[in-house]
Computed example of a mutant assay.
Amino acid sequence: MKKLFISQPMRGKSDEDILAERKKAIELAQEMIGEPVEVIDSFFQEAPADAKPLWFPGKSLELLSGADVAYFAQGWEDARGCVIEHDSALAYGIKSIVA
């Protein structure tokens, strides 16, 4: 079973929208990979109240380091954190799926 990291723009989206997009990403990734995946939870619903913007990509990169596959949801190229995650996945040889 492959470990899946999902990178998606979240700014301005409701939790429901984010979770729905994640569900779709999981289904598409499993279809493309051809086997079930273990999802790395990178949706920080309980981030520290005083977290500075750089806290989020820092934590995401830590989680990305354990992934076999990274899925980049539509619009990733317009979100700073997603671009950092994408560049890191490429630099470190993590297989990527781009929606």
Rank of each mutant, 00 (worst) to 15 (best):
M1E: 14
K2R: 13
K3S: 11
K3C: 04
F5E: 02
S7L: 03
S7T: 04
Q8W: 03
R11E: 13
G12M: 10
G12V: 09
K13G: 02
S14E: 04
S14F: 06
D17E: 15
L19E: 11
L19Q: 09
L19S: 05
A20Y: 06
R22L: 03
R22E: 04
K23T: 12
K23Q: 14
K23W: 06
I26N: 03
E27C: 07
L28N: 06
Q30L: 08
E31H: 11
E31Y: 05
I33A: 03
G34Q: 07
E35M: 11
P36M: 06
V37C: 13
V37W: 04
E38T: 15
E38S: 13
V39N: 01
V39R: 00
I40H: 00
I40W: 02
S42D: 04
F43Q: 03
F43M: 05
F44M: 06
Q45L: 12
Q45M: 11
Q45P: 06
Q45W: 00
E46D: 15
E46R: 13
E46F: 12
E46S: 14
E46W: 09
P48D: 10
P48L: 11
P48Y: 09
A49K: 15
D50I: 09
D50S: 14
D50F: 13
D50R: 10
K52N: 11
K52M: 11
P53V: 08
W55D: 11
W55P: 10
W55V: 12
F56C: 04
F56S: 03
F56T: 03
P57S: 10
P57T: 07
P57R: 10
G58D: 15
S60M: 07
S60R: 04
S60L: 08
L61F: 11
L61G: 07
E62C: 08
E62K: 14
L63P: 05
L64G: 03
G66V: 00
G66Y: 09
A67T: 01
D68R: 00
D68L: 07
D68Q: 06
D68T: 07
V69F: 04
A70E: 02
Y71W: 12
F72H: 05
A73R: 00
A73S: 09
A73Y: 02
Q74T: 14
Q74L: 13
G75N: 07
G75S: 09
W76T: 00
W76F: 11
W76D: 02
E77S: 15
E77I: 15
D78W: 08
A79L: 03
R80T: 12
C82Q: 01
V83F: 00
E85R: 02
H86A: 14
S88A: 15
S88K: 13
A89V: 10
A89Q: 08
A89E: 07
L90S: 13
L90D: 11
L90T: 11
Y92A: 07
Y92G: 05
G93Y: 12
I94G: 09
I94P: 09
I97R: 03
A99L: 01
A99Y: 03
A99S: 11
